[in-house]
Amino acid sequence: MADGGQGPAPAPVGPSPVGPLVVACLDPADLRQEVDPLTGEVRADWRRADLSASDGAALEHSLRAAEAWGGTVLALAAGPPGLDPVLEQAVALGARALRVPWSDAHSGPAVDAVALAAALAAAISQAGPPALVVCGDRSPSRGIGAVPALIAHHLGAEQALGLVSLTVDQSSQVVIAERRLDGGWRERLRVRAPAVCSVEAAGVRLRRAPFAAALRSSGQPIPVAASQSGVASTGAQLRIGGPRPYRPRTKAVAPPMGGTHDRLLALTGVLVAHDPPRIVGPLGPVEAAGELLDFLDGHGYSPPSGPAQ
């Protein structure tokens, strides 16, 4: 639930805004939470809060997009003051930072994603119209991954979620995004700003802040967004029950047939004809690939015909 004070929105800390606004929507969390093996209680230590790999990628993509567009990055996170040191890291990388006070932001799947997304979207709108909002695609606090789509809904923005790569067109406000599809395929999307994208931890690594910037940002107070009067909690969409012992579902298994000897033969397959192993090498790369494809073909694994990759 929102716990911030009322009143005008404070300015985010960091450099003054210029150019298009790129928002890195982050979910800092204790990446080594302890789970009580008996009660299932999850204990987090805020001093260990950090960005997950996909949130790191989100921030890095935001910085690159802002560089390409000559814009500003706003690092935004919802949660208690304990996550301010993580936002300080973003400030050290040249972003502005703002925290939305939110006490159940880390309640895992039980978080009220609709209200949280509304609060984040309101904070984004207060900071200015965003050209791009980038989130990590996976929440370290075990959320259900609905927040980016809900933010897009609130902002009336296009959305492209679960991306493996994200580049921006310098001349136009278009984002070129790539996403995995089943069967090893990928699709490339041209997404028009304003857009909300969520990225996998793939292809990029968050840069390190220079020492002087880390020193300047250390201990800097992070402004807190004003509480959103229009944002009311509707309660979690998912109800979490108490922990119970694991009981696998019963599965009907046919009773064993035949005597012990027959069953052993059937299990081991010793008397069933099969292709003996062949030594095919050493081969050059082309021949080796050919051999592998022939083998897969011969065993019914040939890829379905589809568009070229």
């Binding site: 230590d45 001093r47 020492f211 880390a214 020193l215 250390s218 201990g219």
Partner: peptide
């Protein structure tokens, strides 16, 4: 984790700067 953070806070309160993860 508690004690060292507390002692470092005393130094920072006295005017020292602290840069972590470095």
């Amino acid at each position: 984790a508690d004690f060292d953070s507390w002692l470092a806070d005393q130094a920072v309160a006295a005017g020292a700067s602290l840069v972590t993860s470095t």
